[in-house]
Amino acid sequence: MPVLLLITLLVFVLLHAAPGDPASMLLGQENTAADLEQARRRWGLDQPILVQYFKFAAAAATGDLGKSFRFSRPVKEVIAERLPATCELAFFSILIALTLAIPLGVWSGARPNSWIDNVGTSFGLFGISMPNFWLGIMLILVCAGSFHILPSGGRSTYGVAGAPQTGFYFLDSLLDGNWAALKDAMLHVLLPALALGANMVGILMRVTRSSVLDADTEEYVITARAKGLGDRAVLWRHVFSNALIPIVTVAGLELGTLLSGSIIVETVFAWPGIGSLLITGVTSRDYPLVTGVVMMYTVAFVVINLIIDALYAVIDPRIRY
């Protein structure tokens, strides 16, 4: 909690001390000084920064993040509207990353210096070296521009999705039984999720490989082999389950990077999530909106780390808190 308070104070002071007047930026140049003054008073910008901060913190404690200058709506509402898109994108990126990285890392670690290890290691190195926004542009170029097999941006084709219920298009289309909408949502999320998940594939693959390599020489593995267990059983039941802690730790840490990455990938794919909302807020000096989004990101990051800590005890029963 103290960390969160310090973070909000830091963000608040940084944004409010920034040069440039949000009132004149949002109202335009043709307004009179009186109009600008009135707007500043209405948004509370005429008060000292610390007074503004304490008012914000007191309201935030009750769940009120203020009103967006740009959208003239409560920040909470604007964020809630965009959040499902970012969650959906993050979910599919993680899914892609785990599906590719873990088998590749386990096979590479189990057969060091084999052809599969060489392929896996190169794949990992490429993944961590690839700028996700460039990968996104290249995917658009090839899959949307040249072959026209996947859409280049957005969350759905106009008119295909039904009325939003939860904001999660996958869930909504399942609830409606609208299979065309489900397929459409899946096609739309594929490219941004691939672009966003590529770095995570690289990092997770490398960690999985080295964890498996470490665990492979442990005595319990030798014992399992001596008992006559098959290679596959030893690998997945003994080596992999014991290599999980570093994998989960890094996956958790990488979620933070993934959240950062979503800001830029959403911009490339015109994905209407909170990442692109943040950029809109920054360019229009929408203080309440930016503070709200930054707070959301940091709270999510802190909560993810807490969940990861709790997961350790599930993965390794020897760990007790």
Binding site: I7, L14, V294, T298
Partner: peptide, 12 residues
């Protein structure tokens, strides 16, 4: 540390 890296840079 609680800030995702790019987010802090964007804020600054």
């Amino acid at each position: 540390w609680a800030f995702p890296a790019l987010l802090l840079a964007i804020t600054i």
